[in-house]
């Protein structure tokens, strides 16, 4: 009955992908991580009905093609994706980004720390919280159209 919990990481920077995956591994979070390297790929993966929805999306903001905020907007405009928890994980601490992130329906906003120790801790806490502590929304029944 219990569905396999998985993380979607939307991140164009391969360094950050590697470091994030390593941090999750170090925190003993061994769930599947689906990586999308830009906004368009992220939407394709999310909209593919044959794929199970991620338990949480870790979303970078500055992405090629479709930006993180645009991905977030589209998710919130799509019935099936409306309630999927989204954590904005970005280098930016700009007020504008934070405002719009929450306005568009982000569930959390985390600035990537530069310090590796802090980064490890942040990723580990995020994994723990969203995979173990947080109760995900119930699955949505979508009319096939």
């Amino acid at each position: 009955m219990e569905e396999e919990k998985r993380i979607m990481l939307v991140e164009d920077n391969s360094d950050d992908v590697t470091l994030t995956l390593r941090a999750l591994k170090q925190a003993n979070i061994l769930n599947e991580v689906v990586v999308a390297h830009d906004g368009v790929e992220a939407m394709e993966l999310l909209e593919d009905a044959s794929r199970p929805l991620p338990t949480v999306v870790l979303l970078d903001l500055q992405l090629p093609r479709l930006s993180g905020l645009e991905v977030l907007q589209r998710m919130r405009d799509t019935d099936r994706l409306r309630r999927v928890p989204v954590v904005i994980l970005t280098s930016s601490r700009e007020e504008q980004d934070r405002l719009r992130g929450y306005d568009f329906g982000a569930n959390s906003y985390v600035q990537k720390p530069i310090h590796s120790g802090e980064f490890l801790e942040a990723v580990s806490k995020l994994g723990m919280y969203w995979l173990l502590l947080n109760e995900p929304p119930p699955p949505v029944e979508v009319d096939p159209q």
């Binding site: 360094d15 280098s91 980064f119």
Partner: peptide, 21 residues
């Protein structure tokens, strides 16, 4: 400023992260 805050941080994170790794 936006690009400084965002783009310059990413390589630093990599420097630090991979050094630690």
């Amino acid at each position: 400023a936006y690009s400084v805050s965002h783009d310059l941080r990413a390589p630093l994170r990599a420097l630090d992260g991979f050094s630690l790794a």
